[in-house]
Design a protein around this nucleic acid. Structure first.
Lengths: 155, 155
DNA sequence: AATAATGGTTATATGTCTATAACTGATGGT
DNA sequence: ACCATCAGTTATAGACATATAACCATTATT
């Protein structure tokens, strides 16, 4: 059947995307990304901690955060952040210090070991699948451009 | 600096991919897919079950499976499959029956409610992000082609 | 100064999944 | 018939994360 009767040929610039193509693309993208979700397991095993803890370290990579901020970035609850930071501190990956301007706040900072662990986690997660590396240069360039487009939709 | 000194112009077809571009593309792809990982939560909340259970239903959508097969597809252990199927059966989403040729095996089949739930889960997960829908038709077509390429790398 | 609000901790209960061991019933090879 | 194997179940222990309530110290409000 393939009923394409309603295809409007006038609205070229604002054409509605082909739903089938969008679905195909989205499914393929999800499949590719989620297929090696065992990367999470690899991170956990490599660092000897739960993926969640590794995530906490990664969130601290840009710079120190208060417990409150870290809680928000991990999308969890305060008590669990306390628990996780306790553990990370005990293992020497982070340090707690009191905020100079507000003694209620604690500032969580990565130690040298913490930075190393966080970077290793990032490295593992950033490792692209083989098929991406094998892509033809012109396809990669096109993909690069389009993914940038997807990130920041043009006006 | 951008040192491209070693670029071999002879091996065009087997050119090494630009590592930066690959990294960018991969990061963008992961970001896009993982950003709405709350889809999982949406599925769980909508169906009133854990995402893992919803996943079990989805795996059964193509057709009935034995416990063993279902266990393999869920990448879990037999005892947990028993538990999950027990729960899904109690709630009326699946039914167990004995395999006609091998009475050791149980065949797990979706009920009507199970099919509906599984399809709803698929629908939620298949929903692409806005930016994909807004993509220019020619970009979408290119993306479609390249993603297909990524799925089954050419020889 | 009294009170409320905030950041963090402690304690506790629960849901979800992982991992093992031990068991039952059915099948298949000898 | 005997024994090994296989599918599934039961039981148990534990890791990990979620969710709440109660609490303390500090800061802000009045």
């Amino acid at each position: 059947m393939n009923d394409r009767s309603g295809t409007p040929r006038d609205a070229a610039s604002t054409a509605v995307a082909d739903p089938d193509a969008v679905a195909r693309v989205w499914a393929a993208m999800c499949s590719l990304v989620l297929k090696q979700e065992d990367r999470r397991k690899e991170v956990a095993e490599t660092l000897g901690m739960s993926f969640f803890r590794a995530k906490a370290l990664r969130r601290l990579l840009p710079g120190p955060l208060t417990m409150r901020e870290l809680t928000a970035r991990l999308a969890t609850e305060k008590p669990y952040t306390t628990l996780v930071v306790d553990d990370l501190e005990r293992r020497g990956f982070v340090e707690r210090s009191v905020h100079p301007d507000d003694r209620r706040c604690k500032i969580v900072t990565l130690t040298t070991a913490g930075v190393a662990a966080a970077e290793q986690a990032e490295r593992i997660l950033a490792r692209p699948p083989r098929s991406l590396l094998d892509l033809a240069p012109e396809d990669l360039a096109a993909l690069d451009r389009i993914m940038a487009e997807l990130r920041s939709p043009r006006g």
